[in-house]
């Protein structure tokens, strides 16, 4: 009786603990042998031993998983750590043949020097300006378009939407050549317009918001119509509040895009007056000899990265949600 009970217990154990599958047949064998011997004490002892190894195995495997994950976390964090500690080292300390993992003396003057060398103040303001203006304008256009696609009935709507979706397949690099000509022709070189206008419409954001709008029941819209509410008022009072999380995701991704854009500003602007932060960062410290003052460079990099981290800390949820649906960077 006890044996049978124990046996059941053993199989229960096997069901509930995921780690020790290989052990289970052994346990069964042991139990069966002992049943033949009809030696209950022995069986109980064996089972105890088996359970103990199972527990140990589980602990070991969990520990291994943690070791692996923490190792990966260290690898991921290390560049950031290296950036931070290098940014406060003196050049002499940075160049020690045996590097220090923590600076002997924290030198904040690197930050001041980096700020001045790379003209970061000006570039920062430029980037904020371009980011804010293009985000607001882009949100207005995206909301209006998504509303039209989601709620309004007109001829050619679905066909048009299909065409828009099809353009998403084409790599943006293909547009750059003609857009370069176009903005040149418009006389937009070295202006803020050239950094903002060509990227105002993003088919992907329209698609994202349209999907969100579609989930809002149409009855609400019809009820608002009966009450004599105008479309724009309905959009402002109902649709926008209900899809706020998506709008925040779009805002963040768009701002990050401005912060990280490099190629286009590099092509169409030639002075710091209109350049964005990434251009200044890469170009201010270019020296071919390998004799760069790396601590100062790292201080600049840290300053450029800081806003992104702050945004990430406070708005992680929206960023991760937006990214998981988009898969685009910037």
């Amino acid at each position: 009786m006890t044996e049978q009970f124990d046996n059941q217990n053993a199989s229960l154990e096997a069901e509930t603990t995921p780690v020790q599958e290989e052990i289970v047949p052994v346990a069964d064998e042991a139990v069966m042998e002992d049943a033949l011997d009809a030696d209950a004490v022995m069986a109980a002892r064996d089972l105890d031993r088996v359970r103990k190894t199972q527990r140990v195995m589980k602990i070991i495997s969990t520990a291994l998983i943690y070791v692996f994950l923490i190792f990966v976390a260290i690898v991921i964090i290390f560049p950031f750590y290296w950036m931070l500690i290098s940014s406060v080292k003196s050049l002499e300390e940075y160049r020690l043949s045996v590097p220090t993992l923590f600076p002997k003396r924290i030198l904040l003057s690197n930050y001041v020097e980096a700020f001045n060398t790379a003209n970061l103040g000006r570039l920062f303001l430029n980037t904020m300006y371009v980011g804010i203006v293009s985000t607001i304008a882009s949100l207005v256009i995206t909301v209006l378009s998504a509303f039209a696609f989601a709620r309004l009935e007109f001829k050619g709507r679905d066909a048009l939407f299909g065409v828009l979706l099809a353009t998403m397949m084409i790599p943006g690099e293909l547009f750059t050549i003609t857009n370069y000509q176009t903005v040149f022709y418009f006389g937009w070189m070295n202006t803020f317009t050239v950094l903002i206008v060509p990227f105002l419409v993003s088919v992907f954001y329209i698609y994202l918001l349209k999907q969100n709008f579609m989930q809002i029941p149409n009855e609400l819209y019809l009820a608002a119509k009966v009450d004599g509410t105008t479309d724009l008022k309905y959009l402002w009072k109902v649709m926008i509040p209900l899809s706020f999380p998506t709008l925040i995701s779009i805002t963040i991704l768009k701002m990050m895009g401005a912060w990280n854009s490099y190629v286009w500003p590099n092509l169409v602007t030639s002075s710091d007056e209109y350049r964005l932060i990434t251009n200044g960062l890469r170009n201010a410290f270019v020296e071919s000899t390998g004799d760069v003052n790396i601590p100062i460079q790292m201080a600049a990099v840290a300053m450029v990265s800081a806003p992104l981290f702050l945004v990430f800390i406070f708005l992680r949820k929206y960023i991760m949600k937006g990214v998981s649906r988009s898969g685009i960077k910037g």
Partner: peptide, 15 residues
């Protein structure tokens, strides 16, 4: 693990 995503690929490239 998500941290590398919120970076400027040029800036961290320099690191």
């Amino acid at each position: 693990y998500f941290l590398p995503y919120v970076t400027n690929s040029i800036a961290i490239g320099m690191v």
